[in-house]
C-alpha cells in the first residue's frame, strides 16, 4: 500500500493513453477531471528517484479539453525522457495535491513491430505500463546506441543470439563482451558474426566457458557489444526494447541448460537487458 504524500485512493481517476511509432503519447481522461479554473489542470510525469537521491523536477503538460469535453495532454517525442520510470500524476489546479493516475486502456499497438524500424541515435524508447501497485507510469530508455536482441536459440550447451545495432555500426575488431556482475572486471569476449550492413550480428555463447570456476550460489553475466577495437568506445548493452512489453522478465523466459552441476539460462533483467545466469545446483 502506498503511503506517499499526494497519493490518491480514488479508483476513478483514470487515463487512457495512446502512443504512436514516434513515441508521442496522448493521455486522455474519460470524464472531466477538474472544474474549469483560471489555469488548466496539468499532467505531471515524475521521474522515480533512485534510492537516497533527491526528487527531480517533474515534466508538466497542460491538459486541454477535447471537443467532447474530455481532457487530453500530449507528450511530444522531444525532448526525450531520461532513462527510468516516470510516474503519472494529475495536478487538478496549481497548489493542489498531485494525485496518482490509474491506467485505463493503453493503446500500444504502434509499438508492437518496433524491431522493423531503424532507431537513430540517441535511441529513445517509451512504453506506458501499469506499476505493480496498479498505477500508470511510463518506462523510458535513453541510450546513445542500443543492441536489440531479435532472437535467442538455446541448445543444451550453447545459446545463439541474433541482434541488431541501432544508433551506431560495428567496425573491424568489434567484440561481444560478457561481464561478470560484481566480478572486479572479469570479462569474456567473443567475436560476433557481422552482416555486411554493420548492424545485424550474431554470436554463440558456449555455456561451458561461463560455468568454469562457478562456486556455490549464482553468478550473472551482463552482455554488451563493443562496436570497434578502440578500447575507448563504450560497450553497447544488449537488450530487447522495441515492442510493447515494459517488463519482459517473466514473459520472455528461456529454458535453462544443465552443464554438469550448474544450470545456465539467458534472461531479461528488470530493465529488459540481456544477461546470463549461472546457478550451482542445490544439492
Amino acid at each position: 500500500m502506498t503511503t506517499e504524500p499526494g497519493a490518491t485512493r480514488d479508483a476513478h481517476l483514470r487515463a487512457d493513453c495512446t502512443i504512436d511509432a514516434d513515441g508521442r503519447i496522448a493521455f486522455t481522461f474519460r470524464s472531466p477531471a477538474a472544474a474549469p479554473g483560471s489555469r488548466p489542470p496539468q499532467l505531471l510525469l515524475r521521474p522515480r528517484p533512485k534510492k537516497g537521491q533527491p526528487e527531480k523536477v517533474p515534466h508538466a503538460l497542460d491538459l486541454e479539453p477535447l471537443d467532447d469535453g474530455r481532457l487530453c495532454a500530449v507528450l511530444e517525442p522531444r525532448p526525450a525522457l531520461a532513462e527510468g520510470r516516470w510516474d503519472v500524476y494529475l495536478l487538478a489546479e496549481p497548489g493542489a495535491a498531485r494525485q496518482r493516475v490509474r491506467p485505463g486502456l493503453r493503446d500500444l499497438r504502434a509499438l508492437v513491430d518496433g524491431q522493423a524500424r531503424d532507431w537513430p541515435s540517441p535511441v529513445a524508447v517509451r512504453v506506458p505500463y501499469t506499476t505493480k501497485d496498479g498505477y500508470l507510469a511510463v518506462r523510458a530508455w535513453l541510450r546513445t546506441a542500443h543492441a536489440e536482441v531479435e532472437g535467442i536459440e538455446v541448445t543444451d550447451r550453447t545459446m545463439t543470439v541474433r541482434a541488431r545495432l541501432h544508433g551506431t555500426t560495428l567496425a573491424d575488431g568489434a567484440a561481444v563482451r560478457l561481464r561478470l556482475r560484481g566480478g572486479d572486471g572479469v570479462v569474456r569476449t567473443l567475436e560476433p558474426r557481422v552482416a555486411s550492413d554493420g548492424r545485424a550480428f550474431s554470436f554463440t555463447v558456449d555455456y561451458g566457458e561461463l560455468a568454469v570456476g562457478q562456486g556455490k550460489g549464482s553468478r550473472v553475466w551482463d552482455l554488451s557489444v563493443q562496436s570497434r577495437l578502440d578500447a575507448t568506445a563504450s560497450p553497447v548493452r544488449l537488450g530487447r526494447l522495441f515492442d510493447d512489453v515494459a517488463d519482459r522478465k517473466e514473459i520472455f523466459v528461456h529454458p535453462a541448460a544443465q552443464i554438469g552441476a550448474v544450470a545456465v539460462r539467458p534472461y531479461y533483467t528488470v530493465d529488459n537487458d540481456l544477461s546470463v545466469e549461472v546457478t550451482a545446483a542445490t544439492a
Partner: peptide
Amino acid sequence: HRLGLYENVFLMGAAAPMEAEWVK
C-alpha cells in the same frame, strides 16, 4: 520450452481490461 517455442509463444500474465491487448 519443450517445443522450442520460447520466441513465439508468450504467457503474458493477466490483463484487465483485454481490449487494448486484442487490438494488437
